[in-house]
Design a protein around this nucleic acid. Sequence first.
DNA 1: CACTGATACATGCAAATGCATCTAGTTTGA
DNA 2: TCAAACTAGATGCATTTGCATGTATCAGTG
Lengths: 155, 155
Amino acid sequence: MSGPTGAASSAVRLAAETWESLFRSQVAVMRKLQSGPAFKTLPVKEYDVLFTLSRCPSGQLRLNEINDKVLLSQSSLSRLVDRLEKRGLVERTAAPDDGRGVLLSLTDSGRELQKAIGREHVRDIAHLVAPALTAEEQRELLRLTEKLRASVAGH
Amino acid sequence: MSGPTGAASSAVRLAAETWESLFRSQVAVMRKLQSGPAFKTLPVKEYDVLFTLSRCPSGQLRLNEINDKVLLSQSSLSRLVDRLEKRGLVERTAAPDDGRGVLLSLTDSGRELQKAIGREHVRDIAHLVAPALTAEEQRELLRLTEKLRASVAGH
DNA sequence: CACTGATACATGCAAATGCATCTAGTTTGA
DNA sequence: TCAAACTAGATGCATTTGCATGTATCAGTG
């Protein structure tokens, strides 16, 4: 802990422990959430795409934009969208400004299902998070994770 | 925002936004980490099992204990361990106190590989986390995520 | 002790995933 | 202007995953 080498090593260790803790907490929470009844009808990853679309102001997103938000390979997302489309929950449209691109949007049925699952999901989240952290702590956790995400996203 | 209903609703929203942010930051960081060269030889999930074993004081863990730490179904973990065992990185042993149980431990080769990947991995983590958050912020993030994990783990 | 239910792990099988590659459209630069 | 390099997304195929179930062991009850 004294001298530059010690300080650097402990900075590295702190970063590693922080990430480890963030990761394990995510695992613990996700495990509970995905075992809930909300995701019997639709896997979490598929819901996540519906959710992402529902949050988007224009109502449409390019597949590669969605891919940034989700921990899936490009090909897996492509096929996940196939499944959603087959179930009539989303719709593929050619991107107007880029002939290669595909815009994804929710159908009415997709929007409804997202809302239905979302309501339950949000309740489950609150039941897990609210008893664990005060409102003040939640705001701080939100701030820190957003700061981390923004920094990592910008390389 | 006024009255009990508004307050409750905003508490629920805060919890949901906090989780959303935690989750997205995890996705962003994990995406970078797993694309690094450290995980060309061993998938992240398999490394994670080696890592978990390396951190354990007794050097041995039951499969169900490992399963708690990892976002994998029981059967998937069983087969992931098959692969690690086939590569000679871990060893299954019958649990002495429970005839149903299996203890997992690292082989020398497994320990070495974990250390080799771990060194690189820790460096990658530091490169992502250290520029994003101050040491003080990292400590706070560590504290909050650990508190969340502990609360969720205890139902 | 026998019996019922629960727990730990393994396995058959269908579904999901990722890598490599393909096609098509776009950008770059000589 | 046009060929080479690049990007968006789809697809073949092998690997990984999860659900349902099977087997063995354990814990509790009469």
